[in-house]
């Protein structure tokens, strides 16, 4: 089953195109990381999924239902943590969760759910006095009410301290284990890298990539890094390493070779070095999501 299905969705605000012919499918049960620079159209996409905004063209389905025609039914089965939000009047934290439980016809224990997101200590205080991080925890608690089939989290770690961010990741993981689909928008790449099965990258309203991290690395041509410490660097070795398929760049630094290459080239590189001299140490690192993100959004792909 498909949790989210966007077909040729375009959204314009006057002369500004926020989304341009976006096609996106998020499968049931996956954690999908949605990336993009500020103003790329991530929140607009989420607004369309929740019917806070209507697409100028195209069609959006959530949990098999039309996102614009069945908006209440969609939100009955969806938990939402919006990027920008305000408290419900002068309600306390607990009253926020109780209100959500009632709105969703759920039977959750507000105290238990607030304890899960770490906001139970402030349950009886008006949420209007919460810090940004506390408000994020409260909104997450509200999103979890009723064991939703889909969680839409828009920049969920904004304002959270490291413990809060870790708890957020754990909850995302637990929710996936329960069977929920998680649509996770963020510009904090490590958070997405830590939890996402697949990643979509949006740039200036265009969905420029959707794949697993490994798939994106390969498609973007992002290279891994290798550092090979040698006893000496024979004069012909840099050229012979450069000639190996998949090697993009070789730099000599004293008795060290810094190599950028595709993952499959690493073995042949080490073999070539061992043939030529004594290898003292080898370090390798994969291209980070940040490298991939930069490759797609700064014209490097």
């Amino acid at each position: 089953m498909v949790a989210i299905d966007l077909t040729d969705v375009t959204k314009t605000y006057g002369d500004v195109t926020a989304l341009q012919s976006v096609d996106l499918t998020v499968e049931d049960g996956e954690v999908f990381g949605f990336l993009g620079p500020n103003g790329a159209g991530k929140s607009t996409t989420i607004d369309i999924l929740l019917d806070h905004a209507r697409p100028t063209a195209g069609h959006a389905e959530v949990l098999g239902m039309d996102a614009q025609d069945n908006t209440v039914a969609v939100r009955e089965r969806t938990g939402v943590l919006p990027e920008t939000f305000g408290p419900l009047g002068e309600m306390t934290g607990r009253q926020h969760v109780e209100f959500t439980v009632e709105a969703k016809n759920a039977d959750d224990d507000p105290d238990a759910i607030m304890e899960r997101t770490g906001i139970d200590h402030a349950a009886d205080r008006p949420a209007s006095g919460y810090s940004k991080g506390m408000a994020q925890r409260l909104m997450l608690a509200m999103a979890l009410v009723g064991e939703p089939d889909l969680l839409i989290l828009d920049e969920p770690t904004t304002g959270l301290d490291p413990n809060g961010a870790r708890r957020m990741r754990e909850i995302v993981s637990d929710e996936q284990d329960r069977g929920a689909t998680v649509f996770f928008s963020s510009h904090i790449l490590e958070q997405v890298q830590a939890v996402a099965d697949r990643v979509g990258i949006l740039d200036q309203g265009n969905l420029v990539a959707v794949d697993t991290l490994d798939g994106l690395r390969e498609a973007a041509g992002s290279t891994d890094r290798m550092t090979v410490d040698l006893e000496t660097v024979p004069g012909t070795l840099p050229d012979s390493v450069s000639g190996i398929d998949g090697v993009r760049d070789v730099t000599v630094r004293d008795s060290t070779l810094d190599i950028s290459c595709a993952d499959p080239a690493k073995g042949p590189v080490v073999h070539q070095c061992v043939e030529a001299t004594t290898v003292q140490d080898v370090e390798t690192s994969q291209a980070s999501l940040e490298d991939i993100f930069a490759a797609y959004t700064e014209g490097g792909a």
Partner: peptide
């Protein structure tokens, strides 16, 4: 006022029409 404060975003994130 709910629109400006962001309260409307929360209400319309719930199954409230």
């Amino acid at each position: 006022d709910k629109w400006v404060s962001g309260e409307l975003t929360v209400l319309l994130g719930l199954p409230i029409s």
